[in-house]
């Protein structure tokens, strides 16, 4: 069974159609990179997977999206519950103005009451997974706003991991970071793929090539090409893909 399947998904914002019959499949423990020019619908597609678009007035979709074989837009699905299984990391670090500890614990406190000792355990575990533990373990009570940008972004990853999602969505997670922090996050993604399935939007084609197993190229709301990353960059089948990756675009 695929981890994620999209079947002929179209999306509208009001009258504006943002996606045209997009279909793709992603296997468990793989990293899917979404690339394409600005405004082509990458974020729209990503946000479909945890129903974040539900908040946008005028949003409408057709088609089916299955996660673990289940239609996430079926009427009986609770989007809140879904989002606890599908974590998300944004373009800019979004630490809450609380302590580091409370940031990571935020998602845990939303769910069934865990004991404080359990929460502490899972906070530590998440921070370790996000490769941040060693840097912050001595001042967990410090405000998260005092961390550097790269640390903040890893904190946001830890925060998402703490609720133990099985699918992790990242929307240009390194675009606001310096090269060293970017490298750290890429390394982290590499680690995480052992346990998680990851969908990541990126504008940086080298990054897509470095970290992903599968790459999907969007253009004007259409999925132009989706294949193994190795093939994608060495042997694109579609002329538009070729034009894009060789930088002769637009």
């Amino acid at each position: 069974m695929y981890k994620v399947e999209a079947h002929a998904v179209s999306v509208w914002y009001g009258d504006h159609q943002a996606l045209y019959k997009v279909s793709l499949q992603l296997e468990r423990n793989q990293v899917l990179a979404l690339i394409g020019p600005s405004g082509c619908g990458k974020s729209t597609f990503l946000r479909l997977l945890n129903r974040m678009n539900d908040f946008i007035p005028g949003f409408r979709m057709e088609g089916k999206i299955l996660i673990d074989g289940e239609d996430i837009y079926a009427p009986h699905v609770d989007p809140v519950h879904l989002r606890r299984r599908v974590g998300m990391v944004f373009q800019k670090p979004t630490p809450f103005p609380f302590s580091i500890y409370e940031n990571v614990a935020y998602g845990l406190r939303l769910q069934n009451r865990l004991k404080e000792s359990q929460i502490r355990e899972r906070v530590e575990q998440a921070l370790r997974q996000a490769a941040l533990w060693d840097e912050v373990k001595d001042n967990l009570k410090k405000s998260a706003l005092a961390l550097s940008g790269g640390q903040q972004q890893r904190l946001c990853i830890a925060r998402a991991l703490a609720v133990r999602p099985s699918l992790l969505l990242m929307d240009e997670p390194t675009s606001a970071l310096d090269p060293i922090s970017t490298a750290k996050i890429e390394e982290l993604i590499h680690e995480l793929r052992q346990t998680y399935t990851i969908v990541i939007v990126t504008h940086n084609m080298q990054q897509a090539a470095r970290i992903s197993d599968v790459t999907a190229f969007f253009h004007m709301g259409r999925l132009i090409e989706c294949s193994r990353t190795k093939d994608f960059f060495t042997n694109p089948t579609h002329p538009e893909t070729l034009r894009y990756i060789t930088g002769r675009f637009g």
Partner: peptide
């Protein structure tokens, strides 16, 4: 900031949470 609000929803918070 809207992104902060989305982060909260993204972690599975309800509106009142």
């Amino acid at each position: 900031p809207p992104l902060l609000i989305e982060s909260s929803y993204g972690l599975g918070a309800t509106q009142w949470q």
